[in-house]
Design a protein around this nucleic acid. Structure first.
Length: 508
RNA sequence: GCGGUCGUAGUUUAGUGGUAAAACCUCUGCCUUCCAAGCAGGUGUCCCGGGUUCGAUUCCCGGCGACCGCACCA
């Protein structure tokens, strides 16, 4: 038996299909036609996702002395989101030009009526810049000439499109085409999901589903400082669902409207070397991704250019992953300065300080934030691990093998226990005994259906790193069984003790 | 949100104005001493809602969903 190398290009269709076929990921509410941007994790998917989350939690929280955990509520006081800037930042009204397909922020697109002899003869528009008014005036004069209207042209009165009346919008020319009639009314693209707390649906009851978990850590910063014995620098970490009303969810689970984040806010002294700290966390995150099996050659870095940094950020570097649909952001490591704590201090009136014993001064810490999406990591390990191989059997027949090369750390099933023959009670009995014993510590699977080769292939598609097969030698001779390795398809005989030692070493 | 393409078993695909097919998967039984073997049997499909028609999975309209571009992604 020999194998050829895996096909270079992995198609998303193949991965989506495998996910459904084997029970990793389903489209949400499929029996009702599906709902755009929402997904369900099936039996294998939920194990994989939980393993990713647990690995992160163990490495980020339990195995570190300087990071503590938190689970904050999904719905928080609406003022949290005013303080964070999300209420203002997520509600820009946008205008589309139906002809040019351009999209404009309504508050950045200006228009003015062209008035000659007190009569409106048309409208002009211009994008916001240093000389918007002059530009509008020039366009107004041009329009007057074009329409060959005689008389006194009034000075233009620029207004932005948020103030435009519906009948005016129809007459304002698109900046792209110069022709009226193609602009849509300003539409609020509110990225936050709104809901109502309590049974009364009035405006005072409006609340939001969190668009990030970070604010929970900031809002509870003081509680953590006061209830634990943390000293700067320290981190607060949490995993949990976040919600964003994305305009266009796309690329399977990559951009969805309900997703799960793993974020950690690392609080440092304002005088500390934040750049160095930022670099350290960047390295930590890269190493962690490798530890769960992502190949280094699929990872790259993207430094956000200074002019494009979010208002709270001093520096942001994204760890990018090469997905089949392109190189995309996986993990953002942002230096958030003291923006968030300062905002909450200001808006709540509660000091968000830390008492520095060394200098006897109260300081507001700065923050380094590594923020990653569980779903994006999960998709990355699926894309990196998926392979279709050409297998040649002993007779020279070529057949296809689909295999998911998942790290043992995160594989949904660690070991499959297989009796070589289903109709031999002794084999089945021993296999079930081992299965039960493994089950106490590991996610394992038992399979006695069909031929042995078929069962191996079934486990390959599930990403199970090892299969053990109980045969007559196991029960009649030395008790060893066959260990079959997923990636190499190599087999060797090992004892039960050796199996547990292997798992102890590889699954952590 | 716009434009294009598309929507048939779990998956991948045939096909039709007269209610539909194959392969693989899955399930049951037999067999089987290590890589999707064989034999027998079973479950299961035309995205949803209107319209045209004697009759719609097929044609038309609307919706929903998917993919690809554009735009968006504090």
């Amino acid at each position: 038996m020999s194998t050829s190398s895996a096909s270079a290009e992995v198609s998303m269709d193949a991965i989506v299909s495998l996910c459904k076929r084997r029970g990793f990921i389903f489209q949400s509410s499929e029996i009702y036609g599906g709902i755009n941007g929402f997904f369900d994790y099936g039996p294998l998917g939920v194990e994989l996702k939980k393993n990713i989350r647990d690995c992160w939690w163990n490495d980020m929280v339990r195995r570190r002395d300087d990071v503590v955990g938190l689970e904050s509520s999904i719905i928080m006081h609406p003022k949290v989101w005013e303080a964070s800037g999300h209420v203002a930042g997520f509600t820009d009204p946008l205008i589309d030009c139906k002809v040019s397909k351009q999209r404009y922020r309504a508050d950045q697109l200006f228009f003015a009526a062209v008035v000659v002899n007190g009569e409106t003869i048309g409208y002009v528009s211009a994008l916001e810049n240093e000389r918007t008014t002059e530009e509008l005036q020039e366009k107004a004069e041009a329009l007057k000439r074009k329409k060959a209207v005689q008389g006194q042209l009034a000075a233009v009165q620029p207004r932005d499109m948020t103030e435009a009346k519906p009948e005016e919008i129809a007459l304002v020319p698109s900046p792209a085409t110069g022709e009226p009639g193609s602009l849509t009314p300003p539409r609020a693209f509110n990225m936050m999901f709104e809901t109502f707390v309590g049974p009364m649906r009035d405006s005072s009851a409006v609340a939001y589903l969190r668009p990030e978990t970070a604010q929970g850590m900031f809002a509870d910063y003081k509680n953590v400082v006061d209830s634990t014995r943390v000293k700067l620098p320290f981190g607060i970490a949490q995993t949990g669902k976040s919600f964003r009303n994305e305009i266009t969810p796309r690329n399977f689970i990559f951009r969805s409207r309900e997703f799960e984040q793993m974020e950690m806010e690392y609080f440092i002294h304002p005088d500390a070397d934040w750049l160095k700290c930022h670099e350290e966390w960047l390295a930590w995150c890269q190493n962690w991704l490798k530890s769960i099996g992502l190949p280094a050659d699929h990872l790259s870095l993207h430094e956000h250019p200074k002019e494009k940094l979010a208002f709270y950020s001093r520096r942001t570097v994204d760890i990018m992953f090469k997905y089949p649909f392109g190189v995309q952001e996986l993990w953002g490591i942002a230096a958030r300065s003291d923006y968030d704590l300062q905002q909450h201090q200001k808006c709540s009136g509660v000091p968000q300080v830390y008492f520095d014993e060394a200098t006897k001064q109260k300081v507001v810490p700065h923050v380094i934030e590594p923020a990653v999406g569980v779903d994006r990591i999960l998709l990355a390990v699926l894309c990196a691990g998926y392979a279709e191989e050409e297998i040649k059997d002993d007779k020279g027949n070529v057949e296809k093998r689909v295999v998911l090369r998942l790290s043992p750390r995160i594989a949904p099933v660690k070991v499959a226990v297989l009796p070589l023959l289903k109709n031999k009670e002794a084999l089945v009995g021993r296999a079930k005994e081992l299965y039960k014993k493994l089950q106490r510590r590991y996610a394992v699977s038992y399979d006695d259906g069909g031929a042995i080769g078929k069962r191996y292939r079934r486990q390959d598609e599930a990403g199970t790193p090892w299969c053990v097969t109980i045969d007559f030698d196991t029960i009649e001779k030395d008790g060893t069984f066959t260990l079959r390795e997923r990636d190499s398809m190599q087999q060797k005989r090992i004892s039960e003790a050796e199996l547990f030692a292997l798992l102890e070493e590889q699954v952590y």
